[in-house]
Structure formats: C-alpha cells, structure tokens
Amino acid sequence: MIAKVGLDGHDRGVKIVARCLRDAGMDVIYTGLHRTPEEVALAAVQEDVDILGISILSGAQMTVFPRVLDLLRDRHGSDIAVVGGGVMPDEDVSELKRMGVSEILLQDTPPQAIVESMRRLVRERGPR
C-alpha cells in the first residue's frame, strides 16, 4: 500500500512508484492524498499488506512515522514493514530507522532499486 499523509499534495512521485511496482508484478493499493495516520494504518491492516509505503515531501516525517508505527502495533499490524519515501534530512533517516521504519528511499532512488528493496523486505520477513 502506498499512502500520502497530511497536508502534502505532491503525488507525482508516488504515482510513478506505484506504476513501477505494478510493472514488477505487485498489487499496489493507493490511498490517495491527505490521509490521516489512523486511516492509513487501519487500511493497511484491513488489506493485510506486506509493506506500507508513506511518501512525505512536507517535512512531517518525525510526526507521521512514529504515529503510524504505534497504530500498527495497536492493531495487530506490526508485521507490516513500513517504508518511507520522499525528501528528508539524513539525521531523520537514521532516527526513523531506529524507531522501526524498515527502509527509507530518498529522491533519486532508481525504480529498479525500489522494486528490489520491496522484494528483499518480504523475503527477509519470511512467510506469515
């Protein structure tokens, strides 16, 4: 599932990512713009997704990701890998990974690297 959270209206990138994952043979659920962390976490649990990718270009990453991780834990969704994408400072990236975000893919990540990263995350998690 790919989501846009909060007051961030930039969805060109997220649509390109969705398209390249589709072309790699994956089912991609797109939530649309302006979702809340609650909506995104619940939708991810209902859809039983392998990976929840959140694209952020608004600078709200340090608010959004901890909230989503908490909500997933509450809703029995902690085996869903959370991935971040967009533009953010390096120190945020390491902090977010420490909190439990599985991967952060910044701008300029080639599409094939995104696909491979998703495959690796599912492989590492194993069957469920």
Binding site: R22, A24, V28, I29, Y30, L42
Partner: peptide, 26 residues
C-alpha cells in the same frame, strides 16, 4: 503483462476506514 495492479477503489472510501463497522478489502 506483469500481473501487477494498481488498486484505487479505496481513494473514494477513505472516510469509512476508521469506522469499525465497515471493512474494505481491495
């Protein structure tokens, strides 16, 4: 061709998702 998909029905259903009486699956 790829077997993949983009599932977008939820885009119009987001307001329902926090209601525990509604379950949506794509």
């Amino acid at each position: 061709f790829s077997g993949g998909s983009i599932l977008g029905d939820r885009i119009r259903m987001n307001e329902l998702v926090t209601d525990p009486g509604v379950f949506i699956r794509s």
